[in-house]
Design a protein around this nucleic acid. Structure first.
Lengths: 150, 150
DNA sequence: TGCAGTCTTCAGAAATCTTTGAAAGTTCGA
DNA sequence: TCGAACTTTCAAAGATTTCTGAAGACTGCA
């Protein structure tokens, strides 16, 4: 009932990537289960963590669109599953940070002056993140399209 | 002598992106200075942090290739500066994580079995990160090339 | 309306991560 | 080889983050 070694390892890697540890473990549980969906109680049992932690993790995963609640007729408990396209969603979240860095560089140029040494460094930074900001979403869209073609 | 508001803000954003806080501040100091290079002592003064913290931050920034030591004739102190292409380097670091996730998914498929529900989910994950693993470096190379053309 | 089952919230405990400061180490010039 | 000027290391203090557990809220049913 506990998570397998590879599942825990995957959770750890996701945690390095920025997710909270318990959030990452909940995601791993939903990824590795052989059921269609899991209830909060099942997740808590599998991971041996408190229901409070599960609740918090589910809330944050649902907010960013990685998992979804599944209507469960005949049960009062809520069922959850990994969402279609979750990984692309996770990557899009990274894109927000790229936008922040681009903006931070832009503000820096204003303060430092475009002609200064600092301004030149910041301009290089801004240009790079500007490029990613434009190209990364396009890259992800292309994956979605290719997948649709199959 | 302290960092400007935008500089601290940029440091904070970098910290969210995974850098330690002091490491991010050191990077911001080197980005915003109007000198060609800074010494460890200057960085410590600017940020009002201990020399130990500066040493640790410099070590980690140099290890991942974001900054470089600059030979300083006539001085025993070491000088540092942001490296050319630092931002592309930082992004390439992210790529390592994509590789880890791809590999974690692959291992998961082996354990769960390719035909299982879990195996199908893991295959979707693996395919996505495999795609990024191939395309992201190409995207970054394209930026390097375009920049060279100017 | 009352109840049983489930979920959420949140204060405090526990664990983890950061930073410091001082001692030890290194390097260069004489 | 010695000493001065820096740099690095690392144990411990301090700060921050994370998790739990229990109280309270919600939901659907009778």
């Amino acid at each position: 009932m506990a998570l397998s070694g590879p599942a825990e390892k995957l959770a750890l890697t996701l945690a390095e990537g920025g997710l909270q540890r318990m959030t990452a473990r909940v995601l791993a549980a939903l990824l590795f289960t052989d059921q269609e969906t899991m209830t909060a109680g099942e997740i808590a049992d599998t991971l041996a963590i408190s229901s409070g932690s599960v609740s918090t993790a589910i809330k944050s995963l649902a907010t960013v669109g990685l998992i979804e609640r599944v209507p469960a007729p005949g049960s009062r408990r809520e069922h959850f599953r990994l969402r279609e396209g979750a990984w692309a969603t996770l990557m899009s979240g990274q894109n927000a940070m790229i936008g922040s860095l681009r903006e931070a560089a832009e503000e820096g140029i204003t303060v430092a002056g475009a002609g200064s040494l600092a301004g030149a460094r910041l301009a290089e930074m801004r240009d790079f993140y500007d490029y990613l900001w434009r190209e990364l979403p396009a890259l992800i869209d292309r994956w979605r399209d290719d997948k649709g073609d199959q």
